[in-house]
Nucleic acid binder design. Structure first.
Length: 134
RNA sequence: GUGGAAGGCCGGGUGAUCGCGGUGUCAGCAAUGAUGUCGAGGAAAGUCCGGACUCCAAAAAGCAGCGGUGCCGGGUAACACCCGGGCGGGGUAACCCGACGGAGAGCGCCACAGAAAACAAACCGCUUUGGGACGGGUCGGGCAACCGAAACCACCCAAAGUAAGGGUGAAACGGUGGGGUAAGAGCCCACCACGCUUCUGGUAACAGCGGCGGUAUGGCAAGCCCCACCGGGAGCAAUGCCAAAUAGGGACCGCGUGUCGCCAAGCCUUCGGGCCGUGACAGGGCUGCUUUUGCCCCAGCAGGUUCGGGUUGGCAGCUGUAGCCAUCGUGGUAACACGGUGGUCAGAGGAAUGAUCAUCCAGAGGGACAACCCUUGGACAAGAUCCGGCUUAUAGGUCUUCCACGCGU
RNA sequence: GCGGGCGUUGUGUAAUGGUUAAGACCUCAGUUUUCCAAACUGAAGAUGCGGGUUCGAUUCCCGCCGCCCGCU
């Protein structure tokens, strides 16, 4: 936690910490080639955006993906919602600015594991990736 | 009470905190914020049918091909759906199930077994007649061995009659009983089945009664096919508009240089007119083919194929109607139709309903039962243009009507 | 959203509606060999699921399930 992050907390959180959602296929493909951490409930990928990309350099961006292997539409939607929830609760505080994150749902575990387990795993995975970065 | 049949409804509730999508209001230049309100299903699913809507410029008729439907009548925008009826099958019954036109148009197939598998005949068999004479028996002669006769039985041959019977098979050219006969046979009779038909009932499918025919009728059309009816193609990523960027493309194929007129503006003029433009005819193109109306083209153009380049934004379509929901009335056996009153209920655009906690309602397991306590834990499954159906998945709960059996009064 | 195709032993393929679903590779057992390989002999193993038509279905029809592919 550096001072910059603390300063953000002082301001209105919605202004600078609003998460942007990845939608383009190219963004997902770029993220898939970088570091990733697998947990029972999900797979987390992280990528530092180069300054050449024409996006808000300060923003944290996050994408969610669940393939057909996860299950039918109900199972996929449920998995995505839970991933969205853990990201919303943890990323504004613990995420690094100027990075893209991608959360991938896994079959039959993302939707059933206890929510607290998912949250602790997510923080752990973030720690691993950030440690690699430094 | 037990077992069953048909149909309908619900398919977790309440509260708290944090969050998501649409939209209204307010604040703000804007980003955005505050606040109010609305926010998945009975199957939203599978994409199996039918439509609405949009484009292919639009439309009609015929032919061919392809696909579909298939008892009758009704309902509906339409349907392969629904309702009622008929027929056939199952069930003690309530009730359920049925691709349910045609095998007197034609082609094809029917393995194995069996005498024979589709013109109906052949074969075995049965009967009569004629012939034969190895055997048994009869008669005659003879003590006997044996000899002779006739042709009774069995056997062999031939002719004629017959289709009752023939281990089979999924299926065998009507069935049962009686008469009849040399043996038999619809040969004759009764009943049943089948075919044709008068009359009656019914809109019809069909049913009933009667008459006639002696049988002309095998199965398969979810094999080809015939008959009747229906169907143009593509799909909301349809389609229309706006903006930006790049480009105002290349190659090939196809068509194509016609005739007669007109002259407002512009240009040329030798003042006749010509170019451009425009009208008609001819020609060419436009659904698989033909025809008709129509549309497009004619100095280069629209059409087809292909190569290359740019964009991946916004708005509309987009949810309010063949509406739907609740309720009432009228007509109809019903499906449904008509009318009145009230309400209006997701409209996103890589796509919104989640997380945590408390409590209640069902459920499962345990504490020997109950009260009670502990643990566990919500079926199938989520809109993507919209409707009407079908099919498939579905823990559990609940209501109504009906049937059979048992018991009580 | 629209459309097409395919499911047969462990694998990749055959089979006109008609015996016990054929053959190849693989697996197992035996023979042979000091042992292995090769060869030979033999065995095991399948019609995706549920209905229907038919005397009879891998085949024909219908409904599900799974896989693959195409167009927009």
């Amino acid at each position: 936690m550096d001072g910059k992050n603390a300063a953000h907390k002082e301001r209105s959180p919605a202004v600078s910490l609003r998460l942007q959602t990845l939608t383009k296929r190219a963004d997902f493909q770029r993220a898939s080639r970088t570091a990733h951490v697998a947990k029972p409930g999900f797979v987390l990928q992280m990528r530092k955006r180069p300054d050449t990309e024409l996006v808000d350099t300060d923003a944290i961006r996050i994408g969610f993906t669940c393939s057909k292997k996860v299950g039918n539409a109900v199972a996929r939607n449920r998995a995505k919602r839970r991933l969205r929830e853990i990201a919303r609760l943890a990323l504004p505080e613990h995420g690094l600015h100027g990075h893209d994150y991608v959360l991938i749902g896994r079959k039959s575990t993302t939707a059933t594991l206890p929510f607290t387990k998912l949250q602790s795993d997510f923080l752990h995975a973030l720690g691993i990736l950030h440690g690699k970065k430094k």
